[in-house]
């Protein structure tokens, strides 16, 4: 087990190297001169040259790469071209809203989707199943911003139950955090509920046909116990996979929701950085999300051993 974890962490090195090379080239090879952007439209060639030198843009490419990776390994992602603040600091400020929203979204999705999927599989080919499947098609097909505005219209403007938008950290005031986060989370959750419910249903359907389910019923075990103790754990591996992938995608995909609900997270940070061609920030974001993705994948793989004792690394 420990050997496996070490091997997996070692395997991260080539993956992250490729990401790093890509991220590095992104800045140097794209059209549009960063120096020109920073200096603005009225800059003289001499000013541009000065900026290039200070950014190291005039060195040979491989030297730039080595310097850059060296800094990277020290946790140094560079400084924003626009605001002149260190990228690590910018991300550090913006990441918590995103992570909090993402975690809450995934928890909500699991709590809603898994029972839905189990129920649909248990009552396969009845109206319950059809309703769950219809919902899941709907969840896939409605765009996030439509759902978001629909929720705001209904719960905040018409019913006045919840604030329209904004963000308060949970450490500051947890109930205020919840009242503001619940709508964006539900919005984001729709598609994941659809996805996870579908996966749960398919996986459960397969497991419910297994011999050991018949054995459990032959023991006189209650149906809820059959479903949740005997079946769900056996169905868990594909469900975990989809949840993990979903979570990773979520971190990268909260842009729209953060805009709709005015949350100061990394989604909006990324959008702003792209619009302003703030390369160091873009680079930092790509490195962060890919690192996160690799990490989440590792956690998912390790979680399999918890659900299925036959899986041993």
């Amino acid at each position: 087990m420990l050997g496996y974890i070490i091997r997996r962490i070692l395997a991260v090195i080539p993956v992250m190297t490729i990401v790093a090379v890509f991220v590095f080239l992104l800045l140097r090879l794209t059209p549009g001169d960063p120096a020109a952007i920073i200096a603005g439209d009225m800059a003289t060639p001499a000013q541009l040259e000065r900026i290039r030198t200070s950014l190291g843009l005039s060195d040979p490419l491989h030297e730039q790469f080595i310097t850059w990776v060296g800094l990277l390994l020290q946790g140094e992602l560079g400084t924003s071209l626009i605001s002149n603040t260190p990228v690590t600091q910018m991300i550090g400020q913006r990441i918590w809203p995103t992570v909090n929203i993402a975690v809450l979204t995934i928890i909500l999705s699991i709590l809603i989707a898994v029972p839905m999927g189990v129920l649909a599989a248990w009552r396969h080919r009845t109206w319950v199943d059809y309703v769950v499947m219809a919902f899941s098609v709907l969840g896939f097909s409605i765009p996030v911003f439509v759902i978001g505005y629909l929720f705001i219209q209904t719960f905040s403007i018409e019913l006045r139950w919840l604030p329209v938008q904004g963000y308060i950290a949970p450490s500051e005031d947890f109930s205020k955090f919840l009242s503001r986060a619940i709508l964006p989370c539900l919005t984001l959750a729709t598609i994941y509920v659809a996805l996870i419910a579908r996966m749960t249903r398919a996986s459960m359907l397969e497991v419910l046909g297994e011999d050991y389910i018949r054995t459990a019923r032959a023991k006189g075990v209650k149906e809820t116990v059959v479903l949740f103790r005997h079946a769900l754990r056996n169905a868990a591996v594909p469900i975990m996979t989809i949840i993990g992938t979903g979570f990773a995608l979520l971190i990268g995909g909260v842009v729209v929701t953060e805009s709709v609900f005015n949350i100061p997270g990394i989604g909006r940070l990324t959008v702003d950085a792209i619009l302003a061609r703030d390369y160091p920030v873009i680079q930092g974001m790509i490195l962060l999300t890919s690192g996160l993705y690799v990490f989440i994948n590792l956690v998912i793989d390790l979680s399999y051993t918890f659900f299925d004792p036959r899986i041993r690394y």
Partner: peptide, 19 residues
Amino acid sequence: RARKISMIFQEPMTALNPV
């Protein structure tokens, strides 16, 4: 079930819950 009537099945490989 199990109190009055019990049943054992053909495939011992699959009749027990693997987890």
